[in-house]
Design a protein around this nucleic acid. Sequence first.
RNA 1: CGGGGUGUAGCGCAGUUGGCUAGCGCGCACGCUUCGGGAGCGUGAGGUCCCGGGUUCAAGUCCCGGCACCCCGACCA
Length: 486
Amino acid sequence: MSNNPQQKTPDRIPTRGENFSEWYIETIRKADMADYTVVKGCMVIKPYGYGLWENIQAGLDKRIKATGHENAYFPLLVPESLLLKEAEHVEGFAPECAWVTHGGGSPLEERLAIRPTSEAIICSIYANWVRSYRDLPILINQWANVMRWEKRTRLFLRTSEFLWQEGHTVHRTHEEAREEVLRMLEVYREFLENELAIPAVPGRKSDAEKFAGASETYTVEALMQDGWALQAGTSHDLGQHFAKGFGIKFLDEDNTEKYAWQTSWGVSTRLIGGTIMTHGDDKGLRLPPRVAPVQVVVIPIFKAGLEGALKEKLGQIAKDLRAQDVRVREDFRDNQRPGFKFTEWELKGVPVRIEMGPRDMENNTVAIVRRDTGAKEIVPVDAIVETVKRLLVEIQAAMLAAAKAFRDENTRRPANYEEFKTLLDEKRGFLLCPWDGTAESENAIKNETKATLRCIPFDGGEAQPGDVDIYTGRPAVARALFARNY
RNA sequence: CGGGGUGUAGCGCAGUUGGCUAGCGCGCACGCUUCGGGAGCGUGAGGUCCCGGGUUCAAGUCCCGGCACCCCGACCA
């Protein structure tokens, strides 16, 4: 629906400045990552988007296993009676549940929720598994789809069905559970930083923003290029709430029966949206090399009579790179011109492009172009592997550095509420300010400015002497990060 | 679930006070010439005009009802 049909050229994406949200959607679709389907909020994750997800999965799965967890799989359907066992939990999730009411043509005796998250089903099973303190801890993760009936959906950021991993652990003591919660939050933070080049801020959620049924929720909050915050991952201290609701009890060493302590933690395909909004530019995606489905694309510049020789030469280069575990795509299509291919692969965010044409053939060189800066260098063929490997590392580091700089520049400390509102309207970004710890203050700010309390950061979240709440003026108990959020 | 907008070829759109065989650009197929930053020419394929009813000699166009999607708000990983 263009309001300016005369000037809108097909197949080009809007700039981020013109309309960030349109830029986001168009980039995803033009880069061929995802598509809409007939069911509202249910998207197809196309191979290129799924390839990114697979790389995210691989990197995270490795870390989850390295911290002692195993994968398992629990059922999709949750009997309503199980969902009802934890009061706050059901209150939080019931409104967005999809229900199965019929099976094989007959009404079911009890309707079944399609899991919006798996605490209920998993806790009901854990209750059977736990008898003794010797059965603990239980350290299980699952990769699954979940469904939440969202009123307003958006590719990758908020879809009715989405993919995620959810860790569900059971512990003997609260201390052990708390360590687990913080350990996994740190896994997320480190993963985001080192794989996705997203510098997220770890911290604790306020009571109002907690997971339904948790004692405490911890989060890693990222800042998108439009100044809106994105909750990138959460880790919950579930206390004994679910253990009590589902009867997860064990006989401890001292021969007394005790309720277990639990955690859960997850990240979702939303990370794909976060990666796009952190790094993309007006040419399209920019994918961090470590997770890019294609790290290097090789493109021949054909000249009559040289097609075969160019393909052979580039094929060998691709092979040499693959031998070093570089993910390479050869674009040998003869129905597209080089310029078209350059644009297309830039749109798809491939970190490095290698071009070879007649001139290079003659000189035994290639042109290597990096996606993040556009810088081009001519490199002798026998230096390609080394150059590419160096560039992939450099690009990853440069992307993280740029994202960090952006986050830091856009984290501000308003001196008073007036400045808070002005900064929010004019600059957006993170606003770090003293908070009195009450929902009253938090809600008032939310209602008046649409900024929510994203977290009390681990680093910088302590109240300083003399700090007073940015809204109420009462003595502050912490410094909290506020932002408008996705 | 409230406010606004839009539904015409795969995509982006035009279509006059109701009128003839529903158009244009891009893309797609085929052919030739091309290829170092979105190629040119030629030929061609492609349509339940969102759905259902109504008015009319005649509906993409007017009327009524429905549906879907998008944008803006309230709820959320």
